[in-house]
């Protein structure tokens, strides 16, 4: 029991966010991703929790990466991330692996939590949807009111005609 607890306490939840160089062809992106994944799972005994495949994004500022003697400037890159659980002792080897990759423009390795932390898109969608039904309800109410008044008007007209 104690051993189990020790093993559990040694592992931590991490997340690596990475930019792949825009010079990499889109067909070859899965190769780059699988290289990172194998470094996490096979080489360092990690378990992947969740991930997002890289997609091309425009960077907020120009980034540079020196490969050999050439300095590449990038305005866009393929951004993806992987959340995983790994023994804390192996994280340094993963970092040195990522540092050595020529096709990774930049990466960030952070401690995080197992739960999904990305809520922005959902929250904003909820905010928008919360705004739309209110208008609908209002218009429905208006329609209901006008229909009621129409019926009343009809009634009064009928009464007037009868009289």
């Amino acid at each position: 029991m104690q051993n189990k607890e020790n093993i559990v306490s040694e592992t931590e939840i991490y997340e690596v966010g990475y930019h792949i160089m825009p010079s990499v062809l889109e067909e070859k992106l899965p190769l780059e991703v699988s290289a990172i994944e194998s470094a996490i799972v096979e080489k360092n005994g990690g378990v992947i929790i969740s991930s997002e495949t890289p997609s091309k994004i425009e960077l907020a500022y120009t980034m540079a990466k020196k490969v050999g003697s050439t300095r590449y400037k990038c305005d866009e890159a393929y951004f993806g991330w992987i959340k995983f659980e790994m023994p804390a002792s192996n994280v340094n080897t993963l970092k040195t692996f990522l540092d050595a990759q020529d096709n990774i423009l930049r990466f960030i390795l952070i401690k995080t939590v197992r739960e999904n932390t990305l809520v922005g898109a959902k929250l904003l969608a909820d905010e928008k949807s919360a705004l739309i039904p209110k208008e609908d309800v209002k218009s429905e109410l208006k329609v209901a009111k006008t229909s009621a008044t129409e019926a009343e008007i009809d009634k009064t007209i009928d009464e007037l005609v009868k009289a």
Binding site: I110, V113, V119
Partner: peptide, 15 residues
């Protein structure tokens, strides 16, 4: 208010 316990750096719309 929105019960967000961990702020993600990838949530740029919120940031």
């Amino acid at each position: 208010k929105n019960n967000i316990k961990h702020i993600d750096y990838k949530d740029t719309e919120i940031l």
